[in-house]
Design a protein around this nucleic acid. Sequence first.
RNA 1: GCGAGGGUCGCCAAGCCAGGUUAACGGCGCAGGGCUUAGGACCCUGUCUCAAGGAGUUCAUGGGUUCGAAUCCCAUCUCUCGCACCA
Length: 926
Amino acid sequence: MSEVEQEIRSAWTLAFASNPSDDKEKFYINVAFPYPSGAMHVGHGRTYIVPDVVARFWRMQGKQVLFPMAFHVTGAPVLGIAKRIAKMDEMTMKLYGGLYRVPQETLASFTDPIVIVNYFADEYERVMKQLGLSIDWRRRFTTIIPHYSKFIEWQYSHIYSQGKVQKGEYPVRYCPVCDQPVGDHDLLEGDSAEVMHFVFVKYPFGGYFIPAATLRPETIFGVTNLWANPEVIYLEAEVDGEKWIISREAADKLRMQKHTVAEIGTISGTEFVGKAAQHPITGVDVPILPASFVDADVGSGLVMSVPAHAPFDYIALRDLQQQGKYTDIVPIPLVIVPNFSTIPAQDIVEKNRIPHQDDPRMDELTQELYTAEFSKGKLNDNCGVHAGKSVRQAREDVTKEFVETRGSIIFHDMSEKRVVCRCGSRAYVRILDDQWFLNYADPEWKMQIHEQLQRVELFPPEVRVEFERTVDWLREWPCTRRVGLGTHVPWDPKWLFEPLSDSTVYMSYYTIAHKITTIAAEKLTPAVFDYIFLGIGDANALPVDATTLKELRSEFLYWYPYDFRFSAKDLLSNHLTFQLFHHKAIFPDGLQPKGMVVFGMALLNGMKMSSSKGNVFLLEDAVNEFGADTVRMFLVGSAEPWQDFDWRNELVLSVRKQIERVWQMVLDAADAIGAAPIDAWLISRLQHRIEAATKALRTFQIRQALQESYNGIVSDLAWYRRRLPEGLNGTAALHAVTSAWIRLMAPIIPYTAEKLWSETGHEGLVSFASWPAADPALVSEAVEVSEELLRRTLEDILSILKLVQFGAKKCTLFVAPEWKYKVFGITAAAEDKRSVVPMVMADAALRAKGKEATDAAVQMVRLIHSLPPEQVVLIAAGVDELSIFSAAKEFLEKESGLTVEIAAADAGAHPKGRMALPFKPAIVVE
RNA sequence: GCGAGGGUCGCCAAGCCAGGUUAACGGCGCAGGGCUUAGGACCCUGUCUCAAGGAGUUCAUGGGUUCGAAUCCCAUCUCUCGCACCA
């Protein structure tokens, strides 16, 4: 097989290079391009095989198909990989040297990130070619070539001038040693840490403020005291011009969050414990109490105490009161929560018998109660104007009130302390103040996308809701980064465009990718792209020669807009929606995306496929072990594109056998001659198979298409064989079947199909042969119904034989009498099957039959419900069962091993004969 | 927690939107038989339980609507994906 594949691959070289055609309609599909930082696994395989099957199908339908591919190398991950390889990091070396089998000498050069992406981009291309993907490789590019950068500059010149890119503040994880933001890939530890947003509620204290850090500002109405850690030395500091008392850690963090902090002095926790601050709303005294659970490294290092609702506060207070201190403090209930008393913190602490505030279970219990209150709680009458609100709502409102009218700040802190950069230093939250954002929050832009979305075809249709939701949910997107590979922001070159933001309209770039490289990159000014993509300006007044420009313009216009874009569902909530926004912002109405197909995820032996966990099966290994067609057919056949699929080696082998079966059956049929009565049935069935497969492919139900074109045809051929007269293995009718069959299978198993196509004497490539068309003139319903009758009857005979205890020799078929067909007809036509009996009785001749007729009517309702509706119609029109069975007498005898006799039920003396129904003869075995 | 989509007879997976084609397509696996020196391949049959072609219990669980529900409604349990600066 691998030799055959080789040979065919060379025949395909350049065959799929696609240029605008004068007479053919275009069909342009594309896939989310890969980030080539590692080897391809079988999960990637499906992502590209599905569009390839679609491309091949439409090509055979006579369309001029464009299926391009490129590589997305923008971003930071490879930088990290290169660094880790330079440091000989064990995990990384194992992954690349072991799993990905990068040769040692090549691995040594992986200290350069560009080398990594180029290496894997080449590998992707090689494996994709092995898989037989019908890609126009002339259009390949990577996103960091100068031409593409010029394209991105052009894109953003429009987005920027429309005011859709804005400057703003943004909290990011930041490494003070590297002086850079750190992404998940850059962290040694703590990649699950989230950025939390505290509100600093300021309590006046002497000439100072004590900013108590809280995640639950709505509980301000239940504050009984503040907590300070007596073991901590706090700072007196001037923060943004006010005097605050905070921990040293908080002071450092505040500096990173755009606050000015000047130290004035220090104050030990013990010094102000026992004194009182003032409640910011009521002004009453709030005592400051000591507590060991208060962490200087969280928030401000000082917290407010809500003992009714915070387990820590409750238990710390209980501990003090047990020593006889502060016994006048009583918890103030605030939040009504189902299944809890008015003091939920007490419930949860006492129920779990927590001995003291340093108990390790406390974090978990706190989380439990916070979640319950957040999702189900309502504020009670202690909460002034907020009484009756949900916790969720009150939190939002109170936060707003404090920030806007009471001078509170939002303080960002990590949910875990151990967040460590690759350099070994701890990472913090830092506010970047000159970050650039794409304003996806713009209501007008959103509205345009909602409107546009209605015109986009989506598969599967269920994803439409999710797209709509995503459009609503998107807000400002930070679109620039300081580190990584990519294109510099033209108006602020210290920034680079972030990867998801430089890949939103590249589908248009494909249309010219193979030609634009002949132009020197520095000539590619925004005006040049304006001409190519938007038709703006005079071709003769631009730095590039006019002929070339016009050619690019016309090629773009030929292909665009694209017809379908394919991607896995994890990109739906970002990339797939972003690209709609960008297309809308840049291109005119007629050039907007027309359709999208969203894929499911990949599993390996039931587990999620993941390179980092080593749970992958490399695509190249799969192709070498099983053959490209087998891999393709397995991936297509195991699930529809939008479903998750599971790769299991043991199942793949059976797919290979199926391909071998096609191969054998087609070659066996090559020299069949002559004719048989069953030919008409086979040809008739074929028309249905073609129709069903075609319909399925048009709606991307590739698995369904495969079932029709493989399983369907195989089972038709099996019945056909069975029905051939003794001594015949095939007839000339098979030639029509195999010719259509090869073409139906060609999109899925192109190598095998290509080989069979030439083996069976056809000229040219099957990849460009015309797709078979169903011919209604070749459909014979009568023949199909009569075969169906035989099939069902034979099945019944065989099942009776199986059950019967004696050695049967003879079988008599009693065919239903004419009047029962009449009852069948009446029943079939009845709108409401419940009224059949009176309808039958209305017929004088039938009424004369008495109970026999009413019984028959009841049986007929059951029978009709058990038959496909279209068959019911045909049977109601009348089936000459007597002659069908007579003609098939020999066949029935051969299959059953019995002597078969056929009789009319009314003539038969046998009492069983009365059981005969239309399409269901009475069977007597003796 | 929020948003989206699922849970079907050993496994994969149709059907559900438009209730009666449904004991529930198809494939895989398994079992029996045929063909064969043998194995493979191929063909036939079976594969929830009983059974002269029929009957009984089934489609995550519990309710409901209906002459009739895997399909519609309600509740519960459970799995997958996304939840943002990241490819």
